[in-house]
Design a protein around this nucleic acid. Sequence first.
DNA 1: CCGACTTTCTCCACTCACAAGACAAAGAAA
DNA 2: TTTCTTTGTCTTGTGAGTGGAGAAAGTCGG
Lengths: 396, 396
Amino acid sequence: MRRMTARPANAHQARVLKLLRDGGPNSRAQLGDQIDLSRSKLAVEVERLLETGLVVADGLAASRGGRRSHNIRLAPNLRFLGVDIGATSVDVAVTNAELEVLGHLNQPMDVREGPVAVFEQVLSMAAKLRATGLAEGFDGAGIGVPGPVRFPEGVPVAPPIMPGWDGFPVREALSQELGCPVMLDNDVNLMAMGEQHAGVARSVGDFLCVKIGTGIGCGIVVGGEVHRGVTGSAGDIGHIQAVPDGRPCACGNRGCLEAHFSGAALARDALEAAQQGLSAELATRLETNGGLTAVDVAAAAAAGDATSLDLIREGGTRTGQVIAGLVSFFNPGLVVIGGGVTGLGHTLLAAIRTQVYRQSLPLATGNLPIVLGELGPNAGVIGAARLISDHLFSPA
Amino acid sequence: MRRMTARPANAHQARVLKLLRDGGPNSRAQLGDQIDLSRSKLAVEVERLLETGLVVADGLAASRGGRRSHNIRLAPNLRFLGVDIGATSVDVAVTNAELEVLGHLNQPMDVREGPVAVFEQVLSMAAKLRATGLAEGFDGAGIGVPGPVRFPEGVPVAPPIMPGWDGFPVREALSQELGCPVMLDNDVNLMAMGEQHAGVARSVGDFLCVKIGTGIGCGIVVGGEVHRGVTGSAGDIGHIQAVPDGRPCACGNRGCLEAHFSGAALARDALEAAQQGLSAELATRLETNGGLTAVDVAAAAAAGDATSLDLIREGGTRTGQVIAGLVSFFNPGLVVIGGGVTGLGHTLLAAIRTQVYRQSLPLATGNLPIVLGELGPNAGVIGAARLISDHLFSPA
DNA sequence: CCGACTTTCTCCACTCACAAGACAAAGAAA
DNA sequence: TTTCTTTGTCTTGTGAGTGGAGAAAGTCGG
């Protein structure tokens, strides 16, 4: 099947497409209410979009007291691929043009196996999704990797936990393989965009999105736009010093936040606690599974294990200290906590909140919600779809 | 004399005005090279600007190999007032439309005397500047205060070091008194705008501007625009924890950066050192002046006093720790150090640099200049003029 | 079932912004 | 003086966009 080739010809068309993406099907009249254009002009632009096939007529809407309106919607056969490459697993999802997830696959995989192996995996997952009939092809793909990215080129740069990816032309290679446009970004930024599009951060212009997974990162949204920094490493808060002269970190410094709290650090702490006999709960889990991860700590904490709860609380406090500084600095309207360890849930959240509210200035925290992300594992892939749709729904 | 009443009628005129402000006099042809408009259209808009009196013809320019061009410049009688209210002093300056400082006054004054007393002072200084013949009146004024501001309304909010200013309608009151438009902002943001306009930060889109005066603050520029945060308190880094369980701070917490290093903290430390007999240099200065300020420490350090050098180095290290975190988080293209204590000069700068380069990730620091501001006490007033000119040179 | 009022959509004429090119003015180079 | 450049002005054509005037398709009250 032939995929989407057209792009909006001007800013008006782009705005219409984004309204339809974010607000679903709409009549011309409703679009006219949201856009600053005369009805006639709008009708012309919609007509042109209909000609290109980017949008289609979609039957009659209910009457609002007069003539019934003809609904317009984005072409129902448009498909975006969202790829979220984590440190230890890969998520791939298919969405329609409204960025609704139609199918989602998850596969454990170590990112250190390198770009070639990971791409093989991603492509096979994409093929599997296509085989279910959800998509006949992809009109665009967004992809997130756990490290800094030179955004315009779509190339990872100096990623600490992804040896072998440095300088690999991810965007170009994947675009070649999939035969559609591809955009690459940091996974944390994608999570932020996901929560902004369909999660807790709707209608918030300035917010932070802290992702605690194997590592720790932070998506920064300023005025509705993701801030990536001059070298693409903005939000890399895992190596902010949380404990002076603290634990040695892989980066060469001591006391980095990531060394004291993250999925990896938590697993290490849990293992130590189990081996030292501090927690019977963790010890049994170690014996049955042959190893411990953050998930085990979460489960143990849920079962009331004091050691696990302490570990979570202490980690939350450390994280809260760092976030408190960022809140004072950035003065966001919202802080979202997400990532793999959100399974730690409200124990973690409470510790973070306590610390932030205690340490930041009242003016900055006065009306500052600190909440868990509401999209869970979907945040990354939805953000990826959002990224590529933003690109494709802009004038060429 | 009648002051400027006109405003640019459209975005084109606004762009022309800003080009003339930032680039000085220009011919129509040169303007055409910098703006994306046809010569005819540009000529029309320039003609309209000439009619309003916002710009004037300014003689012939040298030939570039053909017909000589007629120069266009901003009306030479336009005057902006830049006001920088610090914790312990007030700066007032007059600029022309190109934001060149024509006259500058500085007066010691404690901001805690309240808005009424400070305004009296500011107005008398403005009158004195006018009396010199530099200005017959003011077309706009920018004003900075050392505390958070609700920017759209021009009102200080909950300023810690400015009791009595909370909620005072600064913008409206001053506009009334001066009879011209006024914009209010945080003094640190103005310093950032000053360095961006005429200082080291020209041509940098994303940078941080750390001002170390009586307190410590940080201007944040993202994509060329100042980021103020949702409640106007962005950049308030003085109360980020720099030393766990450190000194008690006026804000109620312990270990705030400002409690360990700032003009006030430095003076306190110096006094203590002098009284404990740790520094002969400082002790003599204490005796002759009857007190010690950061300036004394700077002078003592310049004279080689080891205690003073140590104090500066330690403060720089603390500051560097905090900045390192911000650099990791924000990934700026430049860090500017400014404010009253820049008299401490390269000793301070070296300590900050060492700490930042050591603690932040190589990717973020790889090409990160950390420099002293180059405008000194002019930064604030130039930024203030820039603020109001940005406002007035925008379509109404 | 019929008219009065609403809402939606289409068509058309008119305005205005803007570009592109022609042309004149003013100077440099030869 | 001739030729070439650069600058500024003027005219004309094009396309974007607005603002009605209807037509189409409803709802609602009598």
